[in-house]
Design a protein around this nucleic acid. Structure first.
Lengths: 162, 162
DNA sequence: ACCGACCATATGAAGTTCGTATGATACCTT
DNA sequence: AAGGTATCATACGAACTTCATATGGTCGGT
């Protein structure tokens, strides 16, 4: 925890490091986006398709409308994304048993090994990188990443609305 | 620093936390990509355009070819991206004074305030979030973000080549 | 049983992507 | 110094993607 009061030098350092983190985070974002782009082209999908696939895997099963709300993408665009994901065998579209207008998106597992292989370089690098930290540091990092994701979600929602 | 030897319980915890970090990182990546998408549409650009703009701002001035190499995007696609960035007043294309085939890309500052405003929500959230950490924790985080970016760069290059 | 709301997708215009072609310039080899 | 090859940025065009709007089916309240 940060102490109740900090001396001037500490405050200066805090400000400098915070700025560095925010700048690096933007650079990380760019780099991950380029990584994602390479990933996409290797499996014959567009960049956002993988984003949607990830949401379906993580938070599914869910409906196209729910996915539209969560991602902020256009509904008609989503139909195209889901067409590609379905054609590629990444997801299934099931009819909702209750609401017959609705569709339920379910992630399939068939192509996971293929995906895992594309991730293996990044995965190995991360494992190596993480061994350099204490368990306490790892928990700090885990917490930071989770909370930054939350911040990203709010910021995205604000832009989607505004 | 991690101690030379860890007991079994600590090892278990380390493994669990590392996995959590990697999973959260993927989620962060998705969230940042969706944020980036909203950002892009607000300034009438495509997602990758902002990635390229960021690289030009951070590592420029540089040539289209250098940018193609750094990002792994297709050269013909890059022409389109640069057309949009130039038309929008984000960058200038200067002729290289030495190599007359070449072009040098230079970031302009005119629209930075506009961009800054779109970032302000995320920026404020991050500032709030970061006050919850000690200076030592902040440095751990800064280091982690930098090294993860490096890992991402290598992993991207591997996919681009392979 | 109606009616307004909602769900997913169809439609088509405008724009994007990417393999390949082009024209200009640089540089190496002899 | 001239020829040939490589490299630079962009043009071209076919295939595809995106998105505003339209459509047809289904739901739920009254």
């Amino acid at each position: 925890m940060a102490p109740a009061a900090e001396d001037a030098e500490t405050k200066r350092q805090r400000r400098r490091t915070s700025t560095a983190i925010k700048e690096s985070l933007r650079e990380l974002s760019v780099q991950l986006s380029l990584f994602n782009h390479q990933l996409s082209s290797h499996v014959d999908l567009r960049d956002s398709d993988l984003d949607c696939l990830d949401v379906i895997q993580r938070h599914g099963p869910l409906s196209p409308t729910a996915l539209v709300r969560r991602t902020g993408l256009h509904a008609a665009t989503m139909t195209g994304i889901l067409d590609r994901l379905e054609k590629g065998g990444w997801i299934a579209r099931d009819r909702d048993s209750v609401d017959r207008r609705a569709v339920v998106l379910r992630a399939l597992r068939e192509r996971n090994p293929e995906m895992f292989r594309l991730y293996s370089g990044m995965n190995t690098s991360m494992d190596k990188l993480l061994t350099g930290y204490t368990v306490d540091e790892l928990e700090t990092i885990a917490d930071f990443v989770r909370r930054t994701t939350e911040a990203g979600k709010s910021a995205t929602d604000d832009l989607t609305a505004g």
